[in-house]
């Protein structure tokens, strides 16, 4: 990897305690539990930052509020905030988010990954790149990139979805 880090000393935030779902889910055998914000967040929170041994949650790259879900219309939008404005890792992070959701969500979903407005220098370019399926597919053909993504997605503590 790069010898000098983009953001050598990121601010690490405390992990939010995992919210335990209040109602036991087995009350009604046939009741549906729609996919919600927290579930998506649980999928994403443990993804490792490409250059630090911290999770995206700890670096506040993603938060629960930055996820919009509409289960009935099969739509998810994840807005993430890179730690620094010029972060070149932003595309990698975005790619990780997309791959993770691709693997965790039903195929009916349309996933939108965006950089939080104003948090990155080349925001538009990155957004365009992340939501262009041709370019995503091409990126996943690149073994180096795939390795990098897989490393970030590797389950850390068994809790990662």
């Amino acid at each position: 990897m790069v010898s000098d880090l983009i953001n050598a000393n990121p601010v690490v935030y405390e992990k939010k305690e995992r919210r335990v779902r209040s109602t036991p889910s087995c009350l009604d055998e046939y009741a549906a539990e729609p996919i919600d914000q927290l579930e998506i967040f649980d999928h994403l929170r443990d993804i490792k930052d490409p250059e630090h041994p911290y999770s995206l949650e700890e670096l506040k790259v993603i938060t629960e509020d930055a996820i919009e879900v509409d289960d009935s219309n099969s739509y998810v939008r994840v807005t993430f905030t890179p730690t620094v404005e010029h972060c070149s890792m932003a595309t990698i992070i975005g790619l990780c988010l997309r791959v993770k959701l691709m693997r965790s969500l039903p195929t009916r979903y349309k996933v939108d990954i965006r950089i939080a407005p104003g948090s990155h220098a080349t925001e538009a370019a990155v957004n365009k790149q992340l939501n262009d399926k041709e370019r995503v597919a091409a990126a996943l053909e690149n073994p180096n990139l795939v390795d990098m993504v897989d490393e970030c997605l590797a389950p850390t503590n068994g809790l990662a979805g």
Binding site: A32, I35, D42, R103, S104, T107, A137, L140, D150, P155
Partner: peptide, 26 residues
Amino acid sequence: LDDPKRSVRLQAVRCRQAWSSSPVTT
């Protein structure tokens, strides 16, 4: 992955991870 129950979906994600040793794009 599209199961109505959350815990089943979670297991499905785990199972998928276990079976796709190399990334599979759908």
